[in-house]
């Protein structure tokens, strides 16, 4: 089954990756603070049962928005620049200010790319499941293959 969604481009790029999904707010610091001592970035946020202990690095992270500490964008930038970040960030809602900062900082200053799309709609987050094959296009099209 293939379903296509259209969102707004925050940071353009083409990528294909396996989905990992949270329906709770993604706390960037709480989730990714151990990423640099992990071979693959894993979520360590005890408060997020959707993601706890799951691999985030190289995955298509599908989320409503990010929450928590204002170090969030900085951690995202460091993750992108170090090659430890998710392959892309796909927001069902409008992107929040912390994630937006990380997305733009990475796009302007990093040698690595992390496509970011927001406004994909609640239907996107209702549909997508862990393990789905996600393809992101630079025009903000997101294909979900199951």
């Amino acid at each position: 089954m293939l379903k296509t969604f259209q969102g707004r481009v925050i940071a353009a790029g083409d990528v294909t990756a396996e989905a990992v999904v949270t329906r709770n707010g993604f706390n960037t610091l709480a989730s990714m603070q151990m990423m640099f001592i992990q071979p693959k970035t894993k979520c360590v946020d005890q408060s997020n049962p959707d993601l706890y202990n799951k691999i985030l690095g190289g995955r298509a992270l599908c989320l409503p928005q990010t929450i928590g500490s204002t170090t969030g964008g900085m951690f995202l930038f460091s993750a992108v620049e170090s090659g430890k970040a998710p392959a892309c960030l796909l927001f069902s809602k409008d992107i929040d200010s912390l994630a937006a900062a990380g997305a733009v900082l990475s796009d302007v200053f990093s040698k690595n790319k992390m496509p970011v799309v927001d406004r994909l709609g609640d239907e996107f987050l209702d549909f997508v499941k862990d393990g789905d094959r996600i393809t992101v296009k630079s025009d903000g099209t997101v294909q979900v293959l199951r």
Partner: peptide, 9 residues
């Protein structure tokens, strides 16, 4: 003030 991220501030 917005909830700015580190670096942005």
């Amino acid at each position: 003030c917005n909830r700015n991220s580190g670096i942005i501030e």
